[in-house]
Design a binder for these strands. Structure first.
Lengths: 222, 222
DNA sequence: ACTTTAAACGGACCCCGGTCCGCTTGATTC
DNA sequence: GAATCAAGCGGACCGGGGTCCGTTTAAAGT
């Protein structure tokens, strides 16, 4: 179980400017749910997953999910904050596999391979994963800014940043990681392939090329 | 006047798979509006702009815009398709300045400077422009896929692609252009600066660094 | 077992985006 | 200037996201 989606509890409007800390992820103690709450959470995720499988994201209305799970509508919102929250939770759950693959899995994705190799392998793995779940991803992007707060995406960023550093890349590893990840962003790739008819191979070649360019030290400037 | 926002006329469901051509932008004859329609269009854009300036994007409801412009709600939808369409039209209008700057303006942005210099200048110009309009941009991103269809964004892509080619870059210019543009995407930059506290200079340095890396031929691979 | 308390629950309710369809009006033709 | 017709118009209507608040119930204390 993920347990990562900390819903925006109504008790935390707090300081608006909140510069005390990042305050976005006071991850440390996701207070355990009450028994019934946990049970309902599971039911809701299952119901949502089935509705999704059955009729696509369009049919995934909050009322429908609530009804299918046999709970009230308010409960869904209490648990997941809003529709996006529910979708993210659903997605987050499906991320586990991918995360396991690059965190602890076998080479070339896992920690046994050298950083550069892992980096090269990471792109295709991501693209494949995102293609499998693109509908869910698409519909969870209603609020563009929140994308960067999704745990899965944060994890990817840290991962790529780390790999870049380990590969001995010169320069701003964090920014470069953003750039790399952006180049295989789910929405972009979907656009390129579906709407522009670009072959998948070309996108993947782009990833490898980009990794190579970024890892290579720029020899001459203007 | 832009005149670019061709609303999805109810008469054009046509062939769904439409592989005849791109069919996305049959730009060629935006059929002229009837007098009253044109008048209302202007009124609506003005009303929207004022509401935006007055109370922010949140208050920009379709009803409010319609009321402020003194027309019916249906008219707004007929003209702009949906809320996003209205926002894009608004944004598109404000793009003119930027577009003029890099299409026909003076060096280093305009055509009088060498390609590489234009490329370096383009990033900062974009970032500045996007910061000025980030609220509008943000709220026009509800439908992530449509982003790539916005005329302004297409233009940017072609522009950067062209500059890359002119600068003699080796490799997939179109993909590289996507990558470059992605690295200064409005939402990303806003996230980095506002939520992560990254100084603007660092983002801009990232752009220059990236341009340099991409233009430089990768000397050694794995 | 009984009390207490905060969390969880449910569904009526509100708001807004988007649709629909009958009416109006600007353009064009004769 | 009258007739014709497509384009434009408007606002009632619908459905779904999100909120609110009175009620219920799991858990902790005695």
């Amino acid at each position: 179980m993920t347990g990562s989606v900390t819903p925006p509890l109504p008790s935390s409007p707090g300081t608006p400017g909140g510069a005390t800390e990042l305050a976005l992820s006071p991850v440390g103690e996701p207070p355990p749910l009450r028994a019934d709450a946990a049970r309902n959470r599971t039911r809701l995720l299952e119901a949502a997953s089935q509705l999704m499988a059955g009729c696509g994201a369009a049919q995934l209305t909050m009322d429908a999910v609530a009804a299918a799970a046999g709970v009230g509508k308010g409960t869904v919102f209490r648990r997941f904050g809003d529709r996006t929250g529910l979708l993210v939770a659903l997605l987050d759950h499906r991320e586990q596999q991918l995360q396991a693959a690059f965190l602890t899995g076998p080479a070339p994705l896992g920690p046994d391979a050298p950083p550069l190799e892992r980096l090269h392998a990471f792109g295709p793995a991501l693209v494949r994963h995102e293609r499998d779940h693109h509908e869910l991803i698409l519909s969870s992007r209603t609020d563009p800014l929140r994308t960067y707060d999704v745990p899965a995406n944060r994890l990817r960023l840290t991962h790529v940043t780390m790999l870049l550093r380990q590969a001995g890349v010169a320069g701003d590893a964090e920014l470069l990681a953003h750039t790399l990840l952006g180049s295989v962003d789910s929405v972009l790739v979907h656009h390129l392939i579906v709407e522009r008819g670009m072959p998948l191979d070309r996108v993947l070649a782009g990833w490898h090329d980009l990794v190579t360019r970024l890892v290579t030290r720029p020899s001459s400037a203007t």
